[in-house]
Design a binder for these strands. Structure first.
Lengths: 235, 235
DNA sequence: CAAACTCAAAAGTACTACTTAATCAAGAAG
DNA sequence: CTTCTTGATTAAGTAGTACTTTTGAGTTTG
């Protein structure tokens, strides 16, 4: 399944556009592309088609393939998210994703409190307990794993496919924190307590409490990031 | 520019999958597809590629093109949103989009209050005034137009590309209300007042007030929808 | 100087041939 | 009788050629 010619070229070209290496307005000819990437016409055409449906490019006869403005890109495409996270402007990408996450998750918690199945409620509580334990044990890696699982489950329990789809975004944001040393040695006890609170509220079908607790969680995360950014600027 | 073979086939096939007419797990052979839609291999292949990057299908050698589970679709793709809105389950699609909108817009209002340019702040106030006027005049069509423009501008003033991209979603939700006779003859005065409140708060760089007012707006819209749905069930 | 006309460039479409991978089944080994 | 190997077959992936359509730009003509 792995790495066929198509995906290879798509990744390279897409990343080049996402990073701004190929600036908006730049014009490519498909023949030139197939030469540059050493592929057949078939592959080159299909790659361009895909980029076109992602809004990254537009093709016109007698002109060529034009790179479009970032405002026209489909910023929710998982590939584009990946390219931006791997690109030079990773901090900006993380900021954007964190803001989206902070907007959606409280709302998702509310709906989860109304709509989650009994089994999901139970599993959320169990995950919250696991979080407490691994936090005390300072086992950051498994803590992160449980944290991601918690938010993932919550999002899918909201019974909104668009919320559920953001689980990879949340995973990326959470991992981005631990990865960049933004996390303290031990997860903040208040944050862990809030996770328990969210799980409890959902279990008791209390949407208002679930939403408020989740809002506190993402607020806190946002402040952490902001603090880290300003300290980075200071350093 | 208009309707080439590619887009035509993509639209038909995509809509068929989105509507569930082609159920998840169904297997198609690309030769069969090119026959059914009367196109060349080239076009059929490119269409399948695009569907694949949208997560609607997966292609495997010796097997064919398999329709994937809805959970794996890229629900933020504008095309998929379109297909779902035009499909049999339009109400469900509108519900999903409304929930997303209600999650994002308050947050977007907060950031707009911090980040909007002076010009944007001015235009938001102006649009709010226009809203008041057309509301009193019961001119629903131009009211809708200004309403969409207001939310569109707010989202882009949030300086978050992922928020900005949801302007078409918001437009769809707002239009869906008026279109389906969910709107009263005259827009609710409180809602209009809240728009003025949002514009004022943003102009005064008051993120908390802007967020709260916007939250009230989307809450009210959500209640309207819920009421309409339950009355539909009753009727 | 403007409008129409022509030409050429580049994408779009069609088709053919060959390559690769994976499933399924048959047969050999245990 | 079960399991593992192997090979045939199938359908997608890749490559390349030929032809069509659109359209931008330059040129001619009124």
């Amino acid at each position: 399944m792995g790495t066929d010619r198509h995906e290879e070229m798509l990744d390279e070209l897409g990343a080049a556009i996402a990073s701004g290496e190929l600036a908006p307005g730049a014009v490519l000819r498909s023949e030139e592309l197939q030469e540059r990437y050493g592929t057949s016409r078939t592959v080159a055409r299909e790659v361009v088609r895909v980029l076109e449906t992602m809004g990254l490019t537009s093709s016109r006869r007698r002109v060529g393939v034009t790179v479009r403005e970032p405002a026209e890109w489909n910023h929710y495409d998982p590939r584009l998210i990946r390219w931006q996270l791997d690109g030079a402007d990773r901090p900006a990408a993380l900021r954007t994703l964190t803001e989206l996450r902070s907007a959606v998750e409280p709302c998702a918690a509310r709906f989860a409190a109304i709509r989650a199945t009994p089994e999901e409620r139970g599993r959320l509580r169990a995950l919250a307990v696991h979080l407490q334990r691994t936090a005390r044990a300072r086992d950051l890696d498994t803590f992160l794993g449980h944290d991601v699982a918690f938010h993932d489950l919550l999002l899918s329990a909201s019974r909104n496919p668009m919320f559920a789809q953001l689980s990879s975004v949340v995973a990326e944001v959470l991992a981005g924190r631990t990865g960049h040393g933004l996390m303290p040695d031990e997860p903040q006890p208040e944050a862990v307590a809030l996770h328990v609170e969210v799980a409890e509220a959902i279990d008791l079908a209390d949407p208002v409490r679930a939403e408020r607790a989740m809002r506190d969680i993402v607020e806190q995360a946002r402040e952490e990031i902001a603090a880290a950014v300003s300290s980075n600027l200071g350093g």
